[in-house]
Amino acid sequence: MKAIYGILLVALSACTSKNGVVVFQSDFGVKDGAVSAMKGVATEVDPGLKLYDLTHEIPAYNIWEAAYRLQQTAPYWPAGTVFVSVVDPGVGTGRKSVVAKTRTGQYFVTPDNGTLTLIAESIGIESVREIDEELNRRKDSRKSYTFHGRDVYAYTGARLAAGVISFEEVGPLLGDSVVRIPYQKPVLKGDTLAGNIPVLDIQYGNIWTNINDSIFNKLQLSPDKKVQAIITFRDSVVFNRPVPVVSTFGAVPEGQPLAYLNSLMNFSLALNMRSFADSFHISSGPEWKVKIVPVK
């Protein structure tokens, strides 16, 4: 009776994790066949899977940006969705290959190299399992050491999304912790807000911060107020000047700086119809910090 009950639990787990959706992210680009190879592996597991791309334009080796794009996108996908994220400069080394199950019932198949930093903080991780490559690796791929995205991650993610395996069958349980990248979290001290520049609004060169509207509004700025925006990289000041806080780009003349809340309701900086990032040589990542002080 206990054996039958155990089988039923495994079957139920597989059913509840299956929605047939796999979302791919990588730093591969689409100039060659790498992305297509991953999708081919997934399709071979189950031709009925629904395969989508988050992005394959993560800058090469940029684990931090991979972490941000997952956090930015995951809340808009349903429970049961499997994300396969492959930004893996340590491929073939001792870093762990894992599947993380979040508290929202999504799954993230990825190297445990910091990619899950922001997902762990924003959504929360219920548990993490290390991929058992004796069971969850594409057949006849053991001589390949540099394309785990195809041979391990796409294969395991597809099997999980298709219900071929349950989460418990991924491999041994590691707990609920993952490797995390340190960065400046948003904090208000006195009248000074400090935060991080996690990513750029790449198409337009706007500067997005991790300072959300709830903490920004604690400054209690009056309409048409200015703030002193100070941007540093490795503690060297790159930008330091007052900017008006407005609701839309057209509130300032073309080419002039402004501060605003972006579509994610985070404090941001821009030049009207110009690239702020290019003009002031600003990038993003854990070493890029910003301070905001009201101009009196």
Rank of each mutant, 00 (worst) to 15 (best):
E134M: 02
L70K: 09
I4S: 06
I125M: 07
A3L: 05
P286Y: 11
Y76N: 12
S247V: 12
L193Q: 12
A100I: 07
V128L: 09
V293P: 05
A154G: 08
A79D: 03
T43K: 05
G285E: 02
P186Q: 00
S97R: 13
L12F: 07
I131H: 09
N62Q: 04
K218R: 15
N113V: 04
L118H: 13
V246T: 14
Q228V: 13
S214P: 12
H148P: 05
Y155T: 07
F147G: 09
D224Q: 13
W288K: 13
Y260S: 04
D140A: 14
S97G: 15
V252E: 05
V246M: 12
W77L: 07
D213N: 02
G157L: 07
V245Q: 03
G33S: 13
T73A: 14
N196Q: 10
Y107Q: 11
N206H: 13
E130Y: 08
T81A: 10
W77C: 02
Y145Q: 15
A60H: 10
I282Q: 02
L51I: 10
S247A: 15
E134K: 14
A74L: 05
L174T: 03
Y153V: 00
Q203C: 00
Q106W: 09
F233K: 15
R274T: 01
I231E: 10
G157K: 06
R159L: 03
R138G: 07
W288P: 14
V290E: 11
G285M: 03
R150H: 14
A37P: 05
I181T: 10
Y183M: 05
A100V: 10
I211C: 07
F83H: 02
D201A: 13
G114M: 00
K143N: 15
A60D: 10
S279T: 15
E130W: 06
A67H: 04
V252Q: 04
L116W: 04
A229D: 08
S166I: 01
L51M: 14
G20K: 11
E44V: 01
Y183W: 13
A67V: 06
